[in-house]
Design a protein around this nucleic acid. Structure first.
Lengths: 127, 127
DNA sequence: TTAACACTTTGAGTTAGCTCTAAGTCAAGT
DNA sequence: ACTTGACTTAGAGCTAACTCAAAGTGTTAA
């Protein structure tokens, strides 16, 4: 039977509004409609939505995701460029994780200070 | 002597525009001016800028950071609420790292497919 | 058949976080 | 004295990603 837009929204913690917006932006050109004209998502479509969420949640802009979808539609000629996109994006995700780890250190340091009951004045270090 | 706005911008990979914007938004109420009226950052100020960047880069909204700065200005009465803020924020950073790891798995899976030279049709799984 | 409800579209509005422009000030170098 | 260049402000403009409103259509339940 397929899934309705609100079922998909629920499943991926999006709103139906957002999914329609993605569709309008060209991220979901493959979604079928039923006789009533409503979007009907197949299990295969859910995999695409999952990938789109993955890319979006790792900071890829909507426009770049749209480009990727277009490459997919173009067929095997774009296999290599798509592969390269994932290689590049993977590198960025690793960078994000590194940055996050670095920032976690700063936060942990602040927490140590707060846990030790130490008050830090704003104008602490004016030299 | 202190640092000029563009030196600080350079150091933290921001623009002078952005630093003025942060100042306008109330994130830098403690920055001194020289006789010419230009902002002059001390070494202690740089620590504050570093913390602000850390919070911003881990997803804390400008308004929340501003609130934190205000709490700092209010003195020791707000020590506990500030400590709690860091505890909460730390949790969110850990969540971000988890999410990133999850998404990395999806990306690695896609890369495996692309590396195996396997073409995946768009309408793959219509049931 | 009527009400409720989930869906549809177009297009406007919102928010966060910058980003830039215009017009001007100030200090240093020639 | 004049030019250069970094700084200042107020305020407008921009982009991404939603978010919503209005008006309408189609299906289901009483």
């Amino acid at each position: 039977m397929g899934y309705s837009i609100s079922q998909v929204a629920e499943k991926f913690d999006l709103t139906a509004h957002t999914i329609r917006y993605y569709d309008k932006e060209g991220l979901l050109p493959f979604i079928d409609r039923n006789k009533a004209g409503n979007r009907e998502f197949s299990d295969g479509d859910l995999e695409w939505v999952k990938l789109i969420c993955c890319l979006k949640n790792t900071g890829m802009p909507i426009k770049q995701i749209k480009l990727y979808i277009e490459w997919c539609l173009q067929g095997d000629d774009t296999l290599e460029i798509r592969r390269q996109m994932f290689i590049d994006h993977r590198k960025e995700v690793l960078k994000q994780m590194d940055d996050l780890k670095e920032n976690l250190k700063t936060i942990d340091y602040k927490l140590e200070l707060y846990d030790s009951g130490c008050s830090i004045p704003l104008n602490g270090n004016k030299s």
